[in-house]
Design a binder for these strands. Structure first.
Length: 828
DNA sequence: GCTCCATGCAGAGTT
DNA sequence: ACTCTGCATGGAGCA
């Protein structure tokens, strides 16, 4: 495996970088838990290795290494003071769990571990060794494959689907599903692609000898229970310090477990031979460990670097091969079982905080919503490099190097990708994804704004808040439809952690210079956005600790699905590449007989052509829904020392769309053709609200962009409550809000769109509560940057390992209170 | 005090 | 008389 040969130069580069950053880590560890437990959780998860106490000097013992200059990278662990096997016996009785704790207590590699069925050849052979079973017995079925996805986790020996000869007392719980369709579940060769794995097994065997590997943390059942209470408990532990204590206790197992989990997660893609082919100069290893802090910590860092490197370089290569393979199969109309390779599911499937985007199909089938999703159909999914979720990705696991790399090259089942989010989001609320009134879905979808699959947090927050079954169903239905219609783009997510898995593999400028420039650009473009986001997410409303990132990120993907569905229903061809430009909630003067619409100045100046003359220009805008082209005049009036921008000749457009006050228009540009697109979005009104609105023009809550109209007063509020669905999903106010925020996230350069969100939320008590509910901050004094905004330029897929390491090691990243500007400046 | 923007209103144009 | 055009005004938000 030539590709996997770790070049000394590369490693040295990484080491040098790590050397600089390692000093910072200690400081990062000592961070107290801030107001935002979720943030701290993220950081803690990502930086758990920082909790490791200084290693004992005797730990680094190279006596066991090869005598030649080169040694297997995996044999780094030969140097570890391996535990005795008996210490691991208790693991068998522990609740079966994925390696999610590895995600919690081991940072960088943790995020790339724990496919639910990723009982690796490692664990299996450990068991074999333990029980004196012939090591490579072909009678032992492979304990699960990536295609499995049932929650019904069993120990190897209990899986009826297999003939594994091990019993439950085996030392390492083997996670596997009841995937009887697993093409490999009875073929031990699937687990042993390398016939000559014995040598590697030796290495792995020694892992089990880690005398400190008690496994109590590793297999902590806490992490397999997708229960919010558990999560809260975890957060509580984190904040109370108990987590640190535990991490300290288990620190000595860190290194082998990092490797162990990594092997588990990649056992299908990286054979023992692959690992054996990773050669490092002994001197390099020694120096690396020394430079990385020495002792166990240094070795741990080195290990992670190596693993990251392997994943980055080796798995990428394999992924390409796999993509070609899968493409060929798809073209042939085949939907194969998940190959044994490329199980890069970086997260714990059973842990809602840590679930992988590589959602297992079986789980989706479980809820009955996705029965038409063919199992085991997987294709590589490439995400938009500009996916704002990527902000969350990095932010979610700032220390998770491996996760990031694994995420770059992960494979996501296409249907599950789309389905997963709405499978899980309702479960975040009450675990109820059932539907009672499918019509709600229709209603919601038809009332939804159309845009480019962009998020809609406000409404989704409302959804979560209310936990309305119908609404959940509507979302689920729509999302499901979207997933089935589109089958692409956005991976499912239960948590922000998932986003680490969704980094685009699109290669991008990966130099620091490029990143510097990119950060600068984004700082500029987001400065305004950031400002409004701050306001939006600041709230004085007390609220229980919420994994705000989780929710918000989930919502965004969730909403993307919904709006893709909406697109479809409203005849908007999804292949159109529309970029949100601006929107305007129509005022009475806009829908009157003047035939002109005042446009928000800032958005107009940013996104519409610059006007030289006051007469402006004529712009042909195609109605998104009807494809009718409206020739509108875009012009301005001098107003004092400023300008007022107007869209004229809008009378016919307004009338044809039946737009009224409170409705809104959204202007897009087709990024492919450059054409302007317009859509009039009618706000659904009940008789009550429309009558009320007609009788009593609502007051408006002014926003900086002037693009949000909030009916105020009892009538409007009552009407909004009557239209609960609409309220949650995009009627009068919140629809505009949703589009606004969503589009803003879709296009970070759309500067002031979130303004409307803010203003709307202020004017709308319900919506305000929704935002407050999921706000990561409390009170204006805690003007934290919203999590999504905290990372100014983390475009997916454009970070090299060095950059990522550099980034995640940055103290700025460890400081949740830092603004993106600060971060960007510090990075620049 | 400045900016934004909703809207009033005067004047011009049209029927 | 009605419609259209364009400017002016004032309220609201913000620095």
């Amino acid at each position: 495996m030539k590709d996997a040969n770790v070049e000394t130069e590369d490693l040295n580069g990484m080491i040098g970088m790590k050397e600089q950053s390692s000093r910072k880590e200690t400081e990062m560890v000592t961070e107290s838990c801030g107001d935002n437990a979720a943030e701290f959780l993220d950081n803690s998860l990502g930086k758990a290795e920082d909790l490791i106490p200084p290693s004992s000097p005797e730990w680094t013992d190279y006596e066991c290494t090869e005598t030649d200059d080169l040694m297997d990278a995996a044999r780094i662990f030969d140097c570890v003071n391996l535990p005795v096997f008996e210490d691991l016996q208790d693991l068998g009785s522990a609740a079966p769990a994925t390696s999610s704790l590895g995600s919690a207590t081991t940072s960088s590699s943790s995020a790339s571990v724990s496919s639910p069925s990723s009982s690796s050849w490692v664990s299996r052979n450990i068991k074999l060794e333990a029980e004196g079973v012939e090591r490579h017995s072909s009678t032992c079925a492979a304990p699960g494959t990536p295609s499995g996805g049932d929650h019904d986790v069993t120990l190897c020996g209990t899986d009826s689907a297999t003939s594994c000869s091990y019993n439950q007392s085996t030392l390492v719980p083997t996670l596997q599903s009841h995937d009887h369709n697993n093409a490999c579940n009875s073929n031990a060769e699937c687990l042993y692609p390398d016939p000559d794995h014995s040598e590697k097994i030796d290495v792995l065997e020694e892992l089990q000898n880690l005398d400190l590997l008690d496994g109590s943390d590793v297999w902590d059942p806490l992490f397999i229970v997708p229960d919010s209470s558990v999560l809260e408990g975890l957060q509580s532990s984190l904040c109370s310090g108990s987590f640190e204590e535990r991490a300290d206790d288990s620190s000595s197992e860190e290194l082998p477990m990092v490797f162990f989990e990594w092997l588990k997660s990649n056992r299908d893609s990286i054979s023992p031979e692959d690992l054996r082919s990773i050669k490092l100069k002994r001197s390099t290893i020694e120096n690396a460990a020394k430079h990385l802090g020495g002792g166990k910590k240094g070795m741990l860092h080195l290990l992670k670097l190596i693993l990251a490197w392997v994943q980055n370089h080796h798995l990428q290569r394999k992924r390409k091969l796999y993509s070609s393979h899968q493409r060929a199969l798809n073209e042939a109309g085949m939907c194969t079982g998940t190959p044994a390779s490329y199980n890069f599911s970086g997260m714990d499937y059973f842990n809602p905080w840590n679930s992988g985007g590589m959602v297992q199909q079986q789980d989706h089938l479980q809820n009955g919503l996705y029965n038409d999703i063919p199992p085991s159909c997987t294709v590589p999914v490439y995400l938009n490099s500009g996916d704002p979720s990527m902000f969350g990705a990095m932010q979610a696991l700032p220390g998770s190097v491996d996760a990031i790399h694994a995420a770059k090259y992960r494979r996501i089942p296409i249907d599950d990708v789309a389905a997963g989010s709405f499978r899980d989001v309702p479960n975040l609320v009450n675990g109820n994804a059932g539907f009672t009134n499918p019509n709600d879905c229709q209603t919601i979808l038809q009332q939804s704004a159309v845009f480019d699959g962009t998020p809609w947090p406000a409404q989704m927050a409302a959804l979560l808040h209310q936990g309305s079954q119908n609404q959940q169903q509507a979302y689920c239905n729509s999302s499901l439809q979207a997933s089935q219609d589109h089958k692409y783009r956005f991976a499912a997510s239960q948590s922000h952690l998932d986003y680490t898995n969704y980094r685009s593999p699109i290669p991008a400028a990966s130099t620091k210079e490029a990143r510097k420039n990119r950060m600068a650009r984004q700082r500029r473009s987001m400065s305004h956005h950031h400002h409004h986001q701050n306001r939006q997410w600041s709230s004085s409303t007390a609220m229980p600790p919420q994994p705000a990132d989780t929710v918000n990120l989930t919502l965004m993907q969730y909403q993307r699905q919904t709006f893709m569905q909406t697109d479809r229903r409203q005849g908007w061809k999804p292949e159109k590449h529309l970029k949100f430009l601006l929107q305007k909630v129509l005022k009475q003067s806009d829908v009157g007989n003047l035939g002109r619409i005042v446009l928000p100045k800032k958005e107009a100046e940013i996104h519409l052509p610059e006007l030289e003359a006051r007469d402006g220009i004529s712009i042909a805008m195609e109605d998104i829904v009807t494809s009718r082209v409206w020739n509108l005049r875009y012009r301005f009036w001098p107003n004092n020392k400023s300008r007022m921008y107007l869209l004229e000749n809008t009378g016919d457009f307004v009338r044809s769309n039946g737009l009224q006050e409170g409705d809104f228009i959204v202007i897009y540009s087709d990024t492919k053709t450059g054409k302007y697109m317009i859509r009039g979005v009618k706000v659904p009104r009940s008789d009550t609200t429309s009558a009320s609105a007609a009788a009593t023009p609502p007051t408006t809550t002014k926003s900086a962009s002037g693009s949000c109209l909030i009916p105020d007063g009892e009538d409007a509020a009552a009407g909004a409550r009557v239209l609960k669905i609409g309220k949650s999903y995009g009627v009068p106010t919140s629809q505009a809000v949703g589009v606004t925020f969503a589009d803003s996230m879709a296009d970070a350069s759309s500067s002031s769109v979130s303004d409307a969100t803010h203003s709307c939320s202020e004017g709308d008590p319900f919506l305000r509560d929704m935002i407050n509910q999921f706000s990561p901050t409390k009170g204006p004094e805690n003007d934290n940057v919203p999590n999504l905004e905290r990372f100014p330029s983390l475009d997916s897929g454009d970070l090299t390992i060095e950059e990522i390491l550099d980034l995640v090691e940055s103290p700025d990243m460890a400081d949740p209170g830092k603004s993106p500007d600060n971060i960007g400046e510090s990075k620049a």
